[in-house]
């Protein structure tokens, strides 16, 4: 009986597991080729080239700035979507979520239009915020691409926190703001970490939005994905592969930390 039961389970397991492993292996092969195709001397040389150093530096600076801004906005928005009932909530959710499904190029185009030739763009220009074909534009493009992911993670994080914890704090004399900082934020610690890491990875890896809004100009608005793209088009495989490897390491670390925090998405 034991063997028959085992056999039945085996067939089911086998078919599903083989599909799972097939794809995993294929992905592993694709990722691995990034590491095994280039020669390491090439990579070492490329990583110290002025273009790569510029690109890496700009990526990190814009990545940190936009991630900080993303979290600054995602925390209150995620909290509001999780806790409050307000008119138009469904609409707000759809709009803030939309960029997840949007092609990055289209998002970039939309941002280019609004920052380029509308009163919003004129106003921002007048206070010194010009986002079109500038380094500030790189951060803006990254911000709008990563924000919806951060909002989603923060909303689901707050969904899992028992509102009674906050009720208790208020019944003990603390205002809503104090309660948010004393109770909600510390309890959302894992979600905040996950959200920050995923946002950073999204920011660093944003290509389409950056290309359209900030332009992909050499050593000016050049971030890692742009370096990869520019060098592929010149046929400079060494540089392209090097930026690919750097991006891969960043996203691998991000996913690794995200999995550790065990937050729903």
């Amino acid at each position: 009986m034991g063997i028959r039961a085992l056999r039945k389970i085996s067939f089911f397991h086998l078919s599903f597991l083989s599909v799972t492993f097939f794809i995993t292996l294929l992905l592993l092969l694709a990722i691995g080729s990034l590491f095994f195709v280039p020669s390491w001397e090439d990579v070492a040389q490329n990583i110290w080239s002025p273009e790569m150093r510029y690109s890496l530096r700009l990526s990190l600076i814009t990545g940190f700035i936009s991630t900080a801004l993303v979290m600054l906005f995602a925390l209150p928005i995620g909290y509001a979507l999780s806790r409050f009932h307000f008119w138009g909530k469904g609409f707000v959710k759809t709009i803030t979520d939309m960029p997840v499904a949007f092609p990055e190029l289209v998002l970039g185009l939309c941002l280019l239009l609004v920052f380029g030739s509308t009163f919003v763009g004129d106003f921002l220009n007048s206070i010194g915020l010009n986002f079109v074909f500038t380094r500030k534009g790189v951060a803006a493009a990254q911000f709008f691409t990563a924000l919806p992911y951060a909002i989603r993670i923060m909303k689901s994080t707050f969904d899992y926190i028992d509102p009674r914890m906050e009720f208790i704090s208020r019944s003990l004399g603390y205002s809503q703001f104090e309660t948010f900082f004393n109770v909600s934020l510390p309890l959302a610690k894992n979600g905040i970490l996950a959200s920050t890491v995923i946002s950073f990875a999204r920011c660093i890896g944003t290509f389409g939005t950056v290309l359209i809004l900030a332009g992909g100009s050499y050593m000016k608005t050049e971030v890692l994905p742009i370096t990869l793209y520019l060098n592929i088009s010149y046929g400079n495989m060494g540089m392209a592969l090097t930026s690919g490897i750097v991006l891969m390491v960043v996203s691998f670390l991000a996913i690794f930390i995200f999995e550790k925090t065990e937050v729903g998405f």
Binding site: D162, F167, I168, P186
Partner: peptide
């Protein structure tokens, strides 16, 4: 007004 819940809702941090 003070409150005590069934699951006590103690702050875990």
């Amino acid at each position: 007004i003070g409150i005590v819940y069934q699951d006590y809702a103690l702050l875990p941090h």
